[in-house]
């Protein structure tokens, strides 16, 4: 009993240090909102908005769920702003490494505007991993 309850307690306490709060039971933890602009930075230094697709790819076909597929409009950060930023960073990295037909993009950059619990908007700059040559 102590082992199982201890494991449960561990998850609950660990959630305070985790952006995602998995198994920590903190539902509706924030009313925060977010939206993002994503550009691809090409190997020759151009910055292009990817909203309407690039090199045969579309963001909303590669990334789904939690509002990540339509980052260009304001969304509720349903699991909190920190969880959204963390997932969005991972989504950028995933797209950078799973688009083999794209030969011109060097990396992706995103400007994410987060409004945490009706507070002041804050700008976060994210950058994907560099795509392999």
């Amino acid at each position: 009993m102590a082992l199982v309850w201890g494991a449960q307690l561990h998850f609950v306490i660990a959630a305070y240090d985790s952006p995602h709060k998995h198994f920590g039971y903190q539902p509706f933890n924030e009313s925060s909102t977010w939206e993002a602009q994503i550009v691809r930075v090409t190997r020759d230094g151009r910055r292009e908005d990817i909203r309407h697709g690039w090199e045969g790819y579309r963001w909303d076909e590669l990334v789904r769920g939690r509002g990540l597929d339509v980052p260009f409009v304001r969304h509720h950060a349903s699991y909190g702003a920190a969880a959204t930023l963390d997932l969005f960073q991972q989504a950028l990295d995933w797209v950078a490494t799973h688009t083999p037909a794209d030969r011109s993009t060097h990396h992706f950059e995103a400007q994410v505007i987060v409004v945490r619990n009706a507070g002041e908007p804050r700008l976060h700059q994210l950058r994907s991993v560099t795509r392999p040559p």
Binding site: F28, N29, E30, S31, T33, H76, N117, A118
Partner: peptide, 9 residues
Amino acid sequence: VVMADRIAR
């Protein structure tokens, strides 16, 4: 604050 914001939205 959290719920007031959600209700407003």
